[in-house]
């Protein structure tokens, strides 16, 4: 990623999963960006990137939502999302949809080409422009590389860079960090036993590592893992990285909330 100057105004794309069922991922992301001095817009028209339709084999509704997403976000200097998976859809899924004769168009392809490079997963943004954010949290955590963020977006380092900046935090690398947790969108409901068995393998390794939290950048994975953990799977507290970092922000400011938002911000 080329690190130009930090965008001053960004749109937050929460993802439908965080918007509907994981509010702290969305509000946490907003707080973190604001702590950097970024003006954060939360476009009210946002909903879903369309991945669930795309991966279920329904291209037309996927394209409807992709166009809506582009209408909502294309005008911004940058778009930031606490969902690595949704960002990978914008980067990888949208160009493929746009190239599909039945539902795409060259106009759509151009809009995707213009917007995708400015669309960041939250930790990518923080890794690039958030070096001076004061973060502190005494915790031992493990990282779950969500498959789409890792393999489709090709992002492994940014979350580790950001977590590495949190004072007092220890990142324990799980041996199965890169294994799929079994969420897989509608896969989770089509093959629940299989999905849960995969989740248990992931949670089992985390439970054995004696973590305070299993952290990830994807609401989908976390809803699945958390739901499984609470319903008889290995017991592991799971948390979205935006919520964890938001807590780290509070902790660094002191319990009374009067600490510094930012230490010196460098001129990038």
């Amino acid at each position: 990623m080329t690190a130009g100057p930090m965008p001053r105004r960004v749109a937050l794309f929460a993802s439908c999963a965080a918007d509907l069922a994981m509010a702290p991922a969305a509000t946490g992301a907003k707080r973190l960006l604001e702590a950097l001095g970024v003006e954060v817009d939360v476009p009210a028209g946002q909903s879903c990137c369309g991945q669930v339709a795309l991966n279920s084999g329904h291209r037309e509704p996927a394209a409807t939502l992709a166009r809506h997403w582009l209408d909502t976000f294309a005008g911004y200097e940058a778009v930031v999302s606490p969902s690595g998976s949704c960002v990978s859809t914008v980067h990888h899924g949208y160009p493929r949809l746009a190239a599909e004769e039945s539902v795409g168009s060259s106009r759509m392809a151009e809009r995707v080409a213009a917007t995708a490079p400015r669309t960041y997963e939250l930790t990518q943004f923080l890794a690039t422009w958030g070096a001076d954010l004061a973060l502190e949290l005494p915790a031992r955590v493990g990282w779950h590389d969500s498959c789409h963020m890792l393999r489709m977006l090709g992002e492994k380092q940014s979350p580790r860079t950001v977590l590495g900046r949190v004072r007092g935090l220890t990142l324990h690398e799980l041996e199965n960090a890169e294994s799929c947790c079994g969420f897989g969108g509608t896969f989770a409901t089509k093959f629940p036993e299989l999905s849960c068995a995969m989740g248990d393998a992931k949670l089992g390794a985390a439970a054995a590592a004696d973590l305070d939290y299993l952290v990830s950048a994807d609401p989908g994975c976390l809803l699945h893992l958390g739901g499984r953990s609470r319903a008889g799977g290995p017991e592991v507290p799971v948390i979205h990285v935006a919520e964890l970092l938001s807590r780290a922000l509070d902790h660094a400011r002191g319990q009374d909330g009067h600490g510094e938002t930012l230490v010196e911000r460098s001129t990038a």
């Binding site: 907003k30 476009p43 909502t72 989770a188 036993e193 319903a231």
Partner: peptide
Amino acid sequence: RGRSMPSTKDAGQMRRRRRDGGRR
């Protein structure tokens, strides 16, 4: 089947304390 349901009580929370109306 195998998972507890996610809580949606805070759905849309990020939209509540918006400082501006957004551009769209």
